[in-house]
Design a protein around this nucleic acid. Structure first.
Length: 586
DNA sequence: GCCGTTTTCGGCCCGACTGTTTTCAGTCG
């Protein structure tokens, strides 16, 4: 049972407890611990197995620790089973319908016997719901609409869709509306979460109605959901919802912070404020004894007033960032501008669409000092993978381009297949001629965990393999991660000196954020690679940087922040010593 | 149910919106 599943059980316990009318703070305790567990980097199952103290987890005390141990060791939690037996199974789904919470669900069950989402829909339509105390026609209508819109989309847009859509909207509004002074993307998109429910924009403008109007009339708006005054909500043609809020200059800092979230981070910040005798809200900070209030034009001054280091959005997850900021321990995270090269790039020699010259020129114009051209190996027949003969021609061609392109160092590379048994589909004699070898899994992705782990570790032991590409092979929203013992893989990567790629393609983001954290802590050298197949996607590095930042990576954790000379000495090092150089580079 | 530079007891994050109410409960972010 993984952490996500355990977290869901505690969420359910919170909901059921609320229906039962338990103490409010008991419920809050369960809700809090559910969120913490959902993001906890180490599997609780593993912790119990290793006899680690679960009470190290914030929000876990004696009672919850016992419940977790029982759940993990026996597969069942007695108190949860008992609680669940008190209500029909479908009730938990009823609670998940927007606008319906535990209290409403309980009341509808008591009064109407509603215990499933279907019955809820019926009761809302046939008028019986409206007759229940504290319910009414409008409430019924809202539930009907919620159920319908849920059918249309159970709406998580991948960042690959949402971020470009947000960028386009921002650019369009800025062009149409001269009165805009500030316009920023907020919400989880700003935190570079991999999927989002909607795009949040926060705007300061001298003429708010101009901006609201411009948004609702924008060409790619499919539907206007709400709006007027200082806010608007639309559905874009690609199905993503976009909410725009207009605020005053002096409100911007607190509101931008508030709407960036996440909820847990904001909660921690408010607790911290309270300990200082202050009350924080989306409108500013009030001194609870003097009643004096302060407002903020930007986020930095708000964090400063709270005695905290500025916390970059990517770290605002409600984990340890507020404590770290108190101590001044927020690191200087890696930035796009730190990248000195790209180590995973395709051309039309395999499945890319641009020529080698075009990709090299594009890399150079990004200011890179080096770039590895890594077309596919022969195993990728479908991707026009290179035979050994074509690989030699590929290298010769790159050499000729190098002669005419003195400003950037070109590395002859390859993205080689890791075969099902862990061997590489070029022989060692060929691999050792290459400057840079990225090995990736592209086939037999459904192997069981033990086989897959051994397969990848075997590839990492190959002395000519520099890096592993998109380790988990997932495609966000489409294909799951491989099953493997990732911790064992990270340990082997550190031990063998194999670089792990953070594939920046927004469809992949692989390693994902929590894996980046774990790998970094285990001393793995990471690289941020675009895996570009066309000129424009070289710019995808921003997504990889976002993931790296979510994993608390500094420049020193990322290989391709090294300047050319240091990078070349990294390549000359014995593989087993490679972890050292990047860690030492600050 | 958790937790401690006020506390082993007594607190525990804030505000808007909606729909139902004549002052507020529930839900959401």
């Amino acid at each position: 049972m993984n952490n996500r599943q355990i977290a869901e059980i505690f969420e359910s316990i919170a909901d059921l407890s609320e229906m039962k009318g338990q103490q409010r703070y008991t419920i809050v305790a369960y809700q809090k611990v559910a969120r913490t567990i959902g993001q906890w980097p180490v599997e609780l199952e593993q912790m119990v197995h290793d006899k680690e103290d679960l009470k190290e987890i914030p929000g876990v005390g004696d009672a919850i620790a016992k419940k977790i141990e029982q759940l993990v060791t026996t597969g069942k939690m007695e108190s949860y089973e008992k609680l669940r037996a008190e209500f029909p199974d479908g009730m938990l789904n009823v609670i998940r319908v927007p606008g319906v919470g535990p209290k409403t669900a309980k009341q509808l069950w008591d009064n109407l016997g509603v215990s499933t989402v279907e019955q809820l829909g019926e009761a809302a339509r046939d008028g019986s719901l409206a007759a229940v105390p504290r319910m009414g026609e409008k409430k019924a209508g809202a539930i009907v609409r919620a159920l319908e819109s849920r059918r249309v989309s159970d709406g998580q847009a991948p960042i690959a869709v949402a971020m470009p859509a947000a960028d386009r909207a921002v650019a369009a509004l800025r062009e149409i509306c001269p009165s805009i002074r500030k316009l920023e993307i907020a919400g989880n998109l700003r935190r570079y979460e991999e999927t989002t429910e909607r795009i949040d924009l926060i705007c300061v403008a001298s003429d708010p109605s101009e901006v609201v109007e411009a948004l609702t009339e924008m060409a790619n708006v499919a539907e206007v959901v709400g709006g007027g005054g200082t806010r608007a909500s639309v559905i874009l043609s690609d199905g993503v919802q976009l909410d725009l809020r207009l605020v005053k200059d002096h409100q911007f800092g607190a509101l931008f912070q508030y709407f960036t979230g996440n909820e847990q981070h904001n909660g921690l910040l408010r607790e911290h404020a309270q300990n200082m005798g202050l009350s924080l809200s989306e409108y500013g900070i009030t001194n609870t004894s003097t009643n004096e209030s302060a407002q903020f034009e930007d986020e930095a001054s708000l964090y400063e007033r709270l005695g905290l280091q500025f916390i970059p959005p990517e770290l605002r997850e409600g984990n340890r960032e507020v404590d770290a900021a108190k101590e001044g321990l927020i690191p200087r995270l890696v930035e796009t501008g730190d990248l000195k090269g790209d180590l995973h790039v395709h051309t039309d020699w395999s499945d890319g669409v641009a020529s080698m010259v075009e990709m090299v020129e594009a890399a150079q114009s990004k200011g890179y000092e080096y770039v590895a051209i890594t077309d596919h190996s022969s195993g990728r027949g479908i991707a026009n993978g290179l035979t050994e003969e074509r690989l030699r021609q590929h290298g010769a061609m790159l050499g000729r381009i190098q002669e005419n392109t003195p400003g950037i160092t070109l590395l002859h590379g390859s993205e080689v297949d890791i075969r099902a048994n862990g061997t590489i589909d070029y022989p060692d004699e060929v691999l050792q001629e290459l400057d840079w070898v990225v090995a990736s899994v592209h086939s037999a992705m459904d192997q069981d965990s033990t086989v897959m782990t051994e397969r990848i570790v075997r590839a990492m032991r190959n002395p000519h393999v520099h890096a592993i590409g998109h380790l988990s092979t997932r495609l966000i929203g489409e294909r799951k991660l491989i099953s493997a013992d990732f911790e064992a893989i990270f340990e082997a990567a550190a031990q063998t000196g194999t670089v792990l790629e953070i594939n920046a393609s927004p469809e992949r983001l692989d390693l994902k954020d929590s894996h980046v954290s774990m790998a970094r802590e285990l001393g793995v050298v990471l690289a941020i690679d675009s895996d570009a197949h066309r000129v424009e996607t070289l710019g995808n590095q921003r997504y990889g940087v976002g993931v790296a930042r979510r994993g608390w990576c500094e420049p020193r954790h990322i290989l391709n922040t090294l300047p050319l000379a240091d990078f070349m000495s990294f390549l000359r090092m014995d593989k087993s010593e490679r972890s050292v150089l990047v860690a030492a580079h600050v």
